[in-house]
Computed example of a mutant assay.
Amino acid sequence: MLETIHSDGWINELNEDAPTTAVLFPGQGSQQPEMGQAFYDAWPATREWFDTLSAAVDIDVRELCFDGDHTVLTKTENTQPCVYTTGVATFAGLADRHGIVPDYVAGHSLGHFSALTAAGGLDPETGVGLVRERGRQMQQAAEQGAEGEMMAVLCRDTTAVEQACDRVEGANVAARNTDSQTVVSGPEPAVSQVRDRIDDETRARFTTLDVGAAFHSGQMETAATAFTEKLAETSFERADIPVVSDVSGDVYHGDTQVVQELGSQVVGTVDWCAVVETLAGAGVERYIEMPPAGTLTGFIERLCPEAETIPLESPADAAEVFGA
Rank of each mutant, 00 (worst) to 15 (best):
56 A>F: 04
24 L>T: 05
31 Q>W: 02
31 Q>E: 14
25 F>D: 08
59 I>C: 07
38 A>Q: 11
25 F>Y: 08
34 E>L: 08
39 F>G: 02
34 E>R: 15
26 P>G: 08
42 A>I: 00
24 L>Y: 06
37 Q>E: 14
34 E>H: 11
46 T>S: 08
24 L>M: 15
47 R>N: 11
31 Q>F: 03
24 L>F: 12
44 P>E: 02
64 L>D: 07
36 G>K: 05
36 G>Y: 01
54 S>P: 05
27 G>V: 04
50 F>W: 00
22 A>Y: 09
29 G>L: 12
34 E>I: 02
39 F>S: 02
60 D>T: 01
43 W>N: 10
40 Y>D: 00
25 F>Q: 08
61 V>D: 12
30 S>L: 12
45 A>V: 02
64 L>Q: 08
31 Q>V: 04
43 W>I: 15
51 D>A: 06
35 M>W: 03
35 M>H: 08
34 E>M: 07
58 D>C: 13
42 A>G: 08
26 P>C: 08
66 F>L: 13
63 E>W: 06
59 I>M: 09
29 G>A: 14
29 G>N: 13
31 Q>N: 06
52 T>Q: 12
25 F>M: 09
49 W>N: 12
40 Y>R: 00
67 D>Y: 10
53 L>S: 01
32 Q>K: 13
47 R>T: 07
24 L>N: 11
40 Y>C: 00
35 M>V: 02
38 A>D: 11
54 S>D: 01
29 G>T: 08
43 W>L: 15
33 P>G: 03
39 F>Y: 04
56 A>W: 02
34 E>F: 05
37 Q>Y: 10
27 G>W: 01
57 V>H: 11
41 D>S: 14
37 Q>N: 11
24 L>P: 10
37 Q>D: 06
24 L>R: 07
27 G>M: 06
30 S>I: 07
39 F>V: 00
50 F>E: 00
22 A>M: 13
62 R>V: 09
23 V>G: 12
38 A>R: 08
45 A>C: 10
23 V>T: 09
43 W>M: 15
28 Q>A: 14
34 E>Y: 04
23 V>E: 12
41 D>A: 15
50 F>M: 13
52 T>Y: 01
67 D>S: 13
55 A>K: 03
21 T>H: 05
61 V>L: 15
34 E>A: 13
53 L>C: 02
63 E>Y: 06
48 E>P: 03
42 A>L: 04
49 W>S: 02
52 T>E: 14
42 A>W: 01
21 T>K: 05
54 S>N: 03
32 Q>T: 08
24 L>D: 12
24 L>W: 09
33 P>H: 04
56 A>G: 07
41 D>C: 12
26 P>M: 03
43 W>R: 05
50 F>V: 01
40 Y>H: 01
49 W>E: 10
28 Q>D: 10
